[in-house]
Nucleic acid binder design. Structure first.
Lengths: 265, 265
DNA sequence: GTAATAGTGTCTGTTAGACATTATCGA
DNA sequence: TCGATAATGTCTAACAGACACTATTAC
């Protein structure tokens, strides 16, 4: 607490303060974004089937010092007239050309020496975007190379700049947690979806999620059925889709309900 | 991304960079700590009974500009040679004189104009400390007034400086979430505790947690009994305590197990 | 028909939730 | 003895988990 009191050396005039600082201040506060997307790839089979989905992370290849030639997270410096979240939103907009999507704060990375340019405190976010949103950038901005990588590639095969490997690890842990504890799965699904699609989305983010009775459980237990609901047309007939299967499957959508989880209940 | 590239204007020498920055940088990056404690008050009854527990938050009364005379969270500025977490730990140590305790990152507060001293980006933490740890400060540091308040007092009765009301709201939400989803209850309990004590601790942080069959549920269901275990002596006899009741109650301790929660399972 | 995915029937053992009952000890 | 808290008994309905079975469509 004493630091705070003395930091500005008793000067009570905010306008003159900036010239009188006694302590070193950070050299920059960027927002870095771990952009996740779920790629869809058609399977070449005879009959209808679900596309293969795979979780990917978007990285850029740096052109200048530091870490030139290495892969890193997209990011940009925060400015005085915006919050860190604003900076992240702006950055996301610049990368995708789209305003929407899920953007969530991940944490702060401030280990001394993490950035050779000086005292740079980075704020990490993760975003869930659709695959087509990333094509925007590849088309409009040819200054830097853009790549989509699986988590394994990003973590174990690529040389990453800064402490971005740590950030991606943390982001991966967090998206897995959120996938099971919230309804962010909706970000990777159309508004109406089948339960197989939902199950597949969950599994592509959390590979060891296995629930043999998934459909039964989510539709027939009082405590869980609330988070999704059947889609019906104007007359109240259930809507179904046979886009991915011979037999049509019931369509569902997420409700606004969010159950409260507890280890004790 | 372009910001990042241009930020240092192509200068590749880190030593000279600080003099050549073209953009304004933050004026300070403090760590503010929401210190929670659970006070224990003996009940004056004839027979043995559990003490009354109440969640409190520790605030200090500011002596100087800005917000002189208002209550605020304890905090201190982060220095160049430490991480934000280090700064928070240092601050916690200064306030309590103790090194341990639970300290967890809460988030960043960076709304422009939030601090009249300039561009100040605050990082909030929350800590769980024992009541006696706060007496240290009251004894050794008489420069500023220290107070322990209930959440209701802090949020609705006090005039708080900065955006600290928002921070306390967020911290309260978070500690409630963590109380139900993790085993942070252990921070407020002795190493060995009775199930009534555990139940009471949970309830004092999450008042609307009600589980009439709490004891039954936590001891007899396979999925939940793993997080705690009975305490036994060397011969394997169960240990119990009649500190708070006539009939002795079985003592338990937390295990290291942490169940994975999911809205789908 | 066959293949492929959607969805239900059925069975057993476990859990939830409510309420009554017994246990242990101090005063 | 009574009073207070700890812990178990008991009963019904709901749920979990496994596996077999039926349903709907494309080809």
């Amino acid at each position: 607490m004493n630091e705070e009191i003395n930091h500005f050396a008793g000067d009570n005039d905010p306008d003159r303060m900036l010239q009188k600082k006694k302590y070193r201040t950070p050299d920059g506060v960027p927002a870095d974004i771990v952009m996740f997307t779920l790629t869809k790839r058609e399977r070449k089979t005879v009959t209808k089937t679900l596309p293969i989905r795979e979780l990917k992370v978007m990285l850029i290849k740096r052109k200048s010092w530091p870490f030139a030639g290495k892969w890193a997270l997209p990011g940009g410096f925060c400015q005085e007239n915006e919050s860190i979240y604003d900076a992240a939103k702006r950055e996301l907009m610049e990368e995708t050309g789209v305003d929407g999507g899920h953007l969530e704060y991940l944490g702060v990375y401030s280990r001394p020496g993490r950035d050779p340019r000086g005292w740079i405190i980075s704020h990490a976010f993760f975003a869930l975007v659709e695959e087509w949103m990333l094509e925007h950038r590849q088309a409009t901005d040819d200054a830097e190379e853009v790549g989509l990588f699986t988590i394994e590639e990003a973590l174990y095969k690529l040389e990453l700049g800064f402490d971005h490997r740590t950030i991606i690890e943390d982001a991966y842990r967090r998206i897995q947690e959120q996938m099971l504890q919230t309804t962010i799965a909706r970000q990777f699904l159309p508004r109406h979806f089948t339960l197989s699609e939902l199950y597949q989305v969950i599994q592509s983010v959390v590979p060891d999620f296995e629930e043999p009775n998934f459909i039964r459980k989510i539709t027939s237990t009082r405590s869980r059925k609330g988070i999704i609901e059947e889609v019906r047309d104007e007359e109240g007939n259930p809507l179904s889709s046979n886009q991915y299967s011979q037999r049509p499957a019931q369509l569902y959508r997420f409700t606004d309900l969010r159950p409260r989880l507890s280890i004790y209940t």
